[in-house]
Amino acid sequence: MTRYVLMRVGQAALVLWAAFTAGYVLLQLLPGDSILIKFQNPELGLSPQQIAEIRAYYGGGDPPIIGYLHTLLGFLRGGFGYSIDTGTPVVERLAEALPETAELATAGFALAVLIAVALAFAAGYSRTSWLRGALLAVPSLFVSVPAFWLGILLIQVFSFRLGLVPVIGGSQTQQLLLPVLTLAVPISAPIAQVLARGIDQVYTQPFVPVVAAKGASRWWILWRHVARNAVLPALTVAGMTFGELIAGSVVTETVFGRNGIGRLTEQAVNAQDTPVMLAVVVLASTVFVLVNLGVDLLFPVLDPRLKASA
């Protein structure tokens, strides 16, 4: 068991390093130059030589491998360098943006799970075939809805038409409501699909009629036996959707004008602000890796058969 945990943790560390390296290399290869974007403006009146000095200050003149090692070492120490765009430490910019996004992502994910479980259970419990079919069609609909469109639609309907949620101002909960919904809908779809399929599959297992032969009701069977077995694959997918959560928050935060990591990413891309982009990549992969590490470690707890093989 200890071996299993150590293996997983080691793999997680390896994935993080790979994500950092890939992010670094790709950002270096990007065409364009953040220093030129910021400093070539003629109004600043900088000579090419001065720009070259600024570039050297940011480490632009070092051979690539030194730059890489320098940045890696900085990240390991928790220092992400300075934003080229604003000159402030990247850590500060992240710290400003993180709470907004954490709030949105957590609430969005929780709502997504709620929607998914409700859909899958309703479909698993229902005996009317048309209702079942309708419920199972909902995830396909959800996954095909573009987030920006859904966001705009929600603002149109709930804020402008119905006036239920104020566009500007309003309490914190009110501000969260529509973005969370926008984020949750597409994420709930794959979880619901996998969970519903899992439930269907577990229903075909021979142990289900045995439970029924004990006199268990349909709800008892679904809740106490089928769900527990069906949740494992859904858990894997839920871990995977964390990636989409980050991507989704870029769009959602832009549409709803929230200052989170998504907005920060958008700004950094526009300004080709490499240190910020790299920090965002590493932050996103850290969250992703940690969540999936948690899922992996949860597996043997949920399914005792995996304890033996682990």
Binding site: Q205, P206, F207, V210, K214, R305
Partner: peptide
């Protein structure tokens, strides 16, 4: 009805199934 059948299953009629390897819930 199904509900009435539930009251006699297990209590008045028991079932020994065919395949012992898959007839118990693996996670309980």
């Amino acid at each position: 009805s199904t509900r009435r059948m539930e009251s006699i299953r297990g209590a008045q009629i028991g079932l020994i199934p065919q395949d012992p390897s898959n007839s118990l819930n693996p996670v309980k």
